[in-house]
Nucleic acid binder design. Structure first.
Lengths: 225, 225, 225, 225
DNA sequence: TATGAATGAGAGTTCATTCAT
DNA sequence: CATGAATGAACTCTCATTCAT
């Protein structure tokens, strides 16, 4: 820091162009730092997925990421932060995927279809994270702690998106009247459970094959008409 | 707990004849043994529900049940056994409740209604166990261990019951054709997620109020016809 | 607990004398507990004395006391508590020794002599604790923490006793006028440094041999009259 | 720190001729090296003073000195060396101050006065180092290690100076007969403890105000004549 | 030469499990 | 049997030290 700052000052006085020799290395530093953070998050995702928060050990995460134990603490304050940041990062990612897909929807039911598709696709490509996601809120004493509020909020906002879509469908009389939130919960439950089952069964064919099944069931029900 | 203590005192005060106490000592022993086992399981349910398997401590369970730490080990081989036996016991219980209710059904759709009702009712009265139930299979490395096979099986047989009911409905052409198992998974997912949400929201009105909502949604879907 | 309580009730109802079989074991328990606590404190004293607070390890303390590592935590909340309680216990002890000795004094100067004698004697018999004592307040950021206030207070009250004695001597015109507290500090300094030197030199002859030296120097000074 | 940076900038701006910079590069190198060493020692003094040897971290020292962590290791073999060299440097400094002041003494008692004055003045201007100084020898297992011999010697030679002065006073019959070394220890103890107390009390008025108090007490004692 | 990211040994602390009472 | 004190393995986290840049 100090050394580097001095060099910058001297060089600036000398009139050397700063951009080539100094800005780039800083960018590289930053890039590398982000890369390592991502490495660790990825390893954490795998380990947390397999073992759950408490049974996962920092050492295993570090070694999975091929780093030393102490290195994890250069990027995350403690185990909880690692978990929380992982959750928030991935939730942001999931939300972005869904929003992006839904944005192109022509009408609410198309929106729902896109949402289901985006979500199953995301889970298909992020199986490890799905395990973490599906556990959310089950350790009820963790969720009550202040630091986990962000996680709760991310989860809630995800549900809110589904709710809004359903409410929009109701407004246009495409969907029956009723508690939109409750419908959203039920729809989410279908998707989660189908994903869990798909994992349990060994992930034979693409999870996204089930998009129509989910949509159909949600819209028309199982009953013979 | 208090009850137990009272019984002992009363008996001591009554001064039951020695002969009587020796006639069926094995039965009494056995009864007391089962009672203690049940006490511990009940405490374990509460603690596992709140903290999850790893964060729950044997000491907390023992003290919640008002026993000494070591006592737990007289009734359960170790922490895993306690968890597994708890799960199996409760699953047996849940299955029995459902079977009993479904048995009186007049036709498959009534059966489904009874199943949903029995399950939500069970969850409503066994909130603690529900948390344990909802976690099932999420710690994938636990599930793979041999000792957990019983748990897996209990869970699977529960699903199989739903599947059979749905298949029966399909055979009678009450339900549309399609993968009955997948429908069962989706239906379970709805119920689980609605229950989780009900717990998260603070359990305001009876969960069983949602029976019709679930049945309707499952049968007719959400779409305006 | 629970078991034992039951037994007590039953036995009391039966009319068995409680005193012999129940009170004694409780006393024994309590006695043993205190004994172990004392064992650990003694070991801690030795280790803290040799290494200082930070360099001392709980494992070394435990093994010095011939216990397992975890055992220490049955008697002390954490390392700081162990240190603080050790300090407070010994300071109480030291204060009691001094007070007791000083109480029999015929006049203030005799009181001072007794104080010096009691203090040097205590240090002679508690060499390990002396090292801890002499370190007091040197890690200035520890002292500022709330939990260490008790330690600071114990130390201050020790100084206050010396100050009072000196002030009493001044009131009777046995000692020259002047800041009594500052005199007390200086006197303490002599004793501490002489003790440190005595330890450094290998504790050849009894430290208590220096009582008169200290008293003389403090009262009459070093100057040839 | 700021100073250093300024110098570098000025030099760069002045555009010193290359030849000049190469004429005495070794001297400049050497000068800069010593400067950095001094920077680090100064930072170390502050940090060691506040936290003690074990709780002080190299990183904090480095950053206090505005250097990178690794830089410290270019100037000091390891943490212990840093501590030891700091101690030795400052002790040399302290000794020099005292010797210089004492050298001008007209007679032994004046010498003692000058010694006390020099020492309290030094502590007043080197409060941080005083904390390190006052800890000397308290971690008895460190003191026993070979590398600390220099520290022990520095400390002992400091005491020897006091002893010599006192012995000189005795020879001229200005001071009473008696173990000069022991008197020196006691006198040092007074000064150390008064300094500690002065620090604890918040350093209200100059420590050097206490020179006469110390001298008087040491020479004439506290007793009313 | 200066840096600070990486490391892993080692510390404090917890807890499943055992066992003497 | 019931107990809970004792244990040590295992966990989280820190920090002296190294080394690629």
């Amino acid at each position: 820091m100090t050394r580097r700052r001095q060099l910058l000052i001297i060089r600036a006085v000398n009139g050397n162009s700063v951009s080539e020799e100094c800005v780039k290395p800083l960018q590289r530093r930053q890039r590398e730092r982000l890369q390592r953070r991502a490495d660790i998050l990825q390893a954490a995702e795998r380990v947390f997925a397999t073992k759950g928060f408490h049974a996962a050990s920092i050492e295993e995460i570090a070694h999975t990421a091929e780093y030393g134990t102490g290195t994890v603490y250069l990027y995350f304050k403690d185990k909880q932060s690692l978990y929380i940041e992982l959750f928030e990062d991935k939730m942001r990612d999931l939300s972005a995927s869904i929003h992006e897909r839904v944005r192109g929807a022509t009408h609410p039911l198309d929106g729902l279809r896109r949402l289901i598709s985006a979500r199953l696709e995301y889970f298909e490509h992020n199986r490890a994270f799905f395990q973490v996601y599906a556990r959310e809120g089950l350790d009820s004493d963790l969720g009550r702690e202040a630091r986990w509020q962000g996680v709760r909020r991310a989860f809630a906002s995800n549900l809110a998106l589904v709710t809004r879509l359903i409410a929009a469908g109701q407004k246009r009389q495409l969907l029956r009247r009723g508690d939109a939130r409750r419908l959203a919960v039920a729809l989410s439950g279908m998707m989660i459970q189908l994903t869990r089952d798909w994992l349990r069964q060994g992930e034979v064919d693409p999870l996204t094959n089930q998009v129509d099944f989910v949509l159909e069931l949600f819209l028309r029900g199982a009953q013979q008409e």
